[in-house]
Design a binder for these strands. Structure first.
Lengths: 366, 366
DNA sequence: TTGAAAGCGCTAACAC
DNA sequence: GTGTTAGCGCTTTCAA
């Protein structure tokens, strides 16, 4: 970004002061403390400023001096284009933006895609604090943020006990889904989940990977499911779990295909996100499976498209989450222990879940 | 944002240098020009930094010195929450973000709602340039941006001949809609448009307001419509045009209601955005009007919901627009004249437009 | 009211 | 390969 036409440059506070024959303090005051000088003088200062093309105090220099950047950084570790396409992420973003707007702070989106190992962007960010959203516990960008001497608030991911955090009770939330399915009589279930770790694994997920996932939210959901189905003697090790790195509807469909191809007797597909569930619905349709008659599908998040599709899911307040994160950061007063805000979720029973057909029904029709 | 637990603070480059018994240059080099010192010394520097809890060069101080903020500012003059809800705005945002991401630059969302007359946020923004999206030509935030000595790129709004600009040919694009309707035989049409000026006018729009609108995009579209329908002897002054300040589906519906209540003989509702058109569809349904049989409705933008609804509309490349704006800014090399990028649009004939019923049909059924 | 002095923390010539 | 010097442009005690 070199020059462009609209670049006047040059005049500084000092040169203005010299021109006016007053001290720098006075000029500074004209901008920052109007009550500290006579209206007349202030008028003169401002007028001369306009004449000289002085654009007012340089924000960077002011920031250096005041030790305030006037902005909050948002770390996403996800291609930004993803962030703007995932309704959950957009809602969160909106929430953070709202909090910033109210406080008159800017919101700086820090570029940090998963491919880019380059942490420089975090170091370059002139901000008064960071909100970290949905990054794996071992992400280098996160480490870089934590080194910066500014307050940090984490949302959903990762779970750290050194910084403030806002999230939901993922285990409890998805247990609601599990209980619902168990009551309906489902015992042969399959799971579609989002990225569990920084390395790509678009495939079935062995137990160890489930247990050691660095994406804590996904890990917590899987663990809760295992636990819930354990109570009805379902051996979790035999439950097929398919993972997808990129969170898209298409991937939900392909994951469902992969799972059903191997295990066609599954009566319910539990998805850890609505996006994946919408893909599962597509795949079900493609195979001629009627939902919920032939196959139950559940989601997670409560995005608009999911409710429109009648998905059984868990609704979570994404906007409130973002807002809470922003506010926590902005009010990061001195406090000894990290604060934790846990938001409420709500089980939404849609039309995508029903009792599984019995074996007879499978053979002889409904 | 005072302190919070995770705030180490203190050590500076200078103190590190002192501790190590080397010059500040050396420490600086350790971070910025690794090839300027022995690997061994660098290792020592970095190690000591870690020990002292030195988080690396302060980004603000560095920015002051290098005269680079490493970020692009985005001015929106709209409640941020609007920006995240309007699909067009989100697409644009994504495009700008993409361009920034590729260049390793941050994207700073500048808080500047229409209510907030406070321009301070613009002054505080530590950025290397601004992208201005969809603000009225007389917006004070815009004026503040133009005073800043950094390159600026404008998208859609406003039209200035001093800065780079990216947009579409609004007149030509909506003329396509007009011609389509004219060919179908529509002569009694009504228009639903977005905010025309900074002052709220949720009502019919007199000619003068149409002509003098500071939202140039809307003005251009209205002018093109007037012109197109002029060729078939439609007197534009008699065409009802209803404006809405807030760009929501609900407002589209209420605008359609207001228009149809006064002028029920209208055969086509031309909307300057898909959002408004979707609202118009709702209102048509409510009145028991079948679209397109009883009423033709057209939109503008080509958002996903519109295509899903089968709306006749103009598709415009919002993401490409954002990306182009970002790239224009980032490559703002020296150039004498402002650059203008005009993107292609495409007329999409959906199922929401058809020939108007004749008077007889109106009375005796189709 | 206004001004003088003292940096905020860092980088970039340039000299050693 | 390393140090010296000179600010970047601004705010803020403190004294006048």
């Amino acid at each position: 970004m070199a020059q462009s036409m609209h670049v006047r440059r040059s005049a500084t506070l000092a040169s203005l002061a010299a021109e006016l024959g007053v001290s720098r303090t006075t000029v500074s005051n004209a901008y920052n403390r109007p009550d500290q000088l006579s209206p007349e003088l202030r008028r003169r200062v401002l007028e001369t400023a306009r004449r000289l093309g002085y654009p007012g105090p340089d924000p960077v220099a002011r920031s250096l001096r005041t030790r305030k950047a006037g902005a909050v950084g948002l770390l996403l570790t996800e291609n930004l284009s993803y962030a703007f396409r995932d309704p959950g992420a957009v809602g969160f973003l909106e929430g953070v933006a709202l909090a910033c707007e109210e406080a008159g702070l800017g919101l700086l989106l820090v570029p940090a895609s998963p491919e880019r190992e380059d942490v420089a962007a975090v170091h370059k960010a002139g901000v008064d604090g960071f909100v970290v959203y949905s990054v794996p516990a071992d992400d280098p960008h996160l480490a870089a943020v934590l080194e910066r001497p500014v307050p940090t608030v984490v949302a959903d991911q990762p779970e750290l006990d050194t910084v403030d955090r806002v999230g939901i009770d993922d285990g409890a939330a998805i247990s609601g889904i599990a209980r619902h399915l168990i009551e309906l009589g489902h015992r042969r279930v399959g799971v579609l989940c989002m990225r569990l770790d920084r390395d790509r694994n678009d495939d079935f997920v062995p137990m160890q990977r489930q247990r050691e996932a660095h994406f804590h939210v996904q890990r917590a959901r899987l663990a809760a499911l295992a636990n819930a189905f354990g109570t009805v003697a379902v051996d979790w090790a035999s439950v097929p779990v398919v993972e997808r790195f990129d969170h898209t509807v298409a991937n939900g469909a392909s994951a469902a295909k992969q799972l059903l191809d191997r295990d066609p007797h599954v009566t319910a597909l539990i998805c850890t996100s609505d996006i994946l569930a919408l893909g599962a619905l597509t795949e079900a349709r493609r195979r001629g499976l009627r939902v919920p008659h032939d196959l139950t599908v559940t989601g997670f998040d409560g995005i608009a498209d999911a409710e429109r599709a009648g998905l059984t899911t868990v609704r979570q307040p994404v906007l409130a989450k973002g807002k809470a994160a922003g506010e926590l950061l902005i009010n990061a007063a001195e406090h000894a222990k990290p604060r934790v805000v846990t938001l409420e979720t709500e089980l939404v029973i849609g039309t995508s879940s029903a009792a599984p057909r019995t074996t007879e029904e499978r053979w002889f029709g409904p």
